[in-house]
């Protein structure tokens, strides 16, 4: 499953927000990937998420695959739309 999001938080997906996201992603069995124009990353790895340097206003796609892919996507959607920021 996949879905696109626009990052709203002022500081993009850096630091703590990346950590919050990675932690949440790690709760699921499915593989979860973040795709951006600059490349893609394992959403469960805070380091890879930070390495993408996602800035405010950027569009990202989240792709989940596995037994709990729906729940995973919903959980991350909730996180991203609830304005994850610093």
């Amino acid at each position: 499953m996949e879905k696109q999001f626009v990052i709203k938080s002022e500081n993009g997906l850096h630091a703590r927000p990346a950590g919050v996201l990675a932690k949440r992603a790690a709760d699921f069995k499915s593989s979860i990937e973040i795709q951006t124009s600059k490349g893609s990353a394992n959403a469960k790895s805070i380091m890879s998420v930070m390495a993408l340097g996602i800035v405010s206003g950027a569009t990202i796609k989240i792709v989940t695959e596995g037994e709990d892919e729906r729940e995973a996507l919903e959980a991350l959607e909730e996180l991203l739309t609830s304005n994850v920021s610093e």
Partner: peptide, 9 residues
């Protein structure tokens, strides 16, 4: 410790 346990490191 978190870095040590990161799946991509």
């Amino acid at each position: 410790l978190m870095i040590l346990e990161d799946p991509e490191f």
